[in-house]
Amino acid sequence: MTRRAAPLVRAAWALAAAFAVTLGILLAAGAPPFATLAVMAEGGLGSQAAALRTLAAFTPLLLCGAALCVTFAANLWNIGVEGQITMGAIFAQGCLRAADPAGGLPAGLDLALGLAASALGGLVWALLAGMLRTHGRVHEIFSGLGLNFVAMGVSLWLILGPWKRPGMASMSGTETLDQALWLPALGGRPMSMVGPILAVAAFVGAAWLLRRTFFGLTLAAVRQNALAATRLGLRPGLRILAAMGICGALAGLAGGILVAGLYHRLIPSISGNYGYTAILAVLLASGSLLALPAACLFFAVLTVGSVQLPLSLSLDSSLAGVLQGVLVLTLFAARRLRPLSRRREP
């Protein structure tokens, strides 16, 4: 088995096990197992409209997945991605609502500024968690989780308070942005190709950074032995902050794309659990950069396809959430229970 093929074999075995468990659960839930899976696949990929929706969910997942790869590379348990998406969305909305589509800057520049602002928002939020780690000795799990809640609180406060729409404040979100400030859409659907392109570019950039640059190497050094990295003069604290910053910027950009490309306004819970789902996707890909897009796509199909469960089969759509969780757990369990296991931990 070559080193490159090993993850694939592992994934195939794990997927087979997960598939079997999934069928079992569907049977137990009284759902026709194959029809259920088919309906979900059809709902996620079966038509152009469905594929576009899946792409819309895939975009933030891939961005956040790439972001997480950077922090995982430095051995950081960054679960603050949700908050970083939210902060990115807030910054983008703040920038775009201040833009004047009629005059001043051309709309393209407004949009670019909005997206840049979103990256900045995520970066600032991630650096907060990073500095709490490097300077305050607060573990990033706690600061990340805490800052997630704070970001959500801030977005709710803005929507119901200072940025409320004229008339009655609504949980529907802030006033919709002027159409000139939407990311250019495709075929009249509320879907822009700019997002997926940026996401793929960001993913390739992150992969290049981790695999092909000195910076990536230093992150690996920090991950494997922070003390040795210090001795080598690699300044782990700085590397940690850099990794957090890059991660935050990418997650923030995801938030910006959600505002400018999908919802066209700031809404409550705009981060949509993408930050947590992306963690699952990265775990599912078990750190393999190659497998990450596939894992993200898989979760995107599951999310979008599950909409069809109540519509087509009158099944409780929570089933998709159960499947998602069980799949990830099974995949982990399967990796441990794998036959022909010559385990070599990374």
């Binding site: 409209a49 969910a57 919802y263 809404i267 949509g272 999310t303 109540p310 519509l311």
Partner: peptide, 25 residues
């Protein structure tokens, strides 16, 4: 019917999309 139609439970799924589905059905 479609329940849990909110961005936290169904990220990326918007009301107009679901209406397209319902109309198709």
């Amino acid at each position: 019917y479609l329940d849990k139609l909110n961005p936290a439970d169904r990220p990326g799924v918007t009301v107009p999309q679901v209406v397209d589905d319902l109309a198709a059905k």
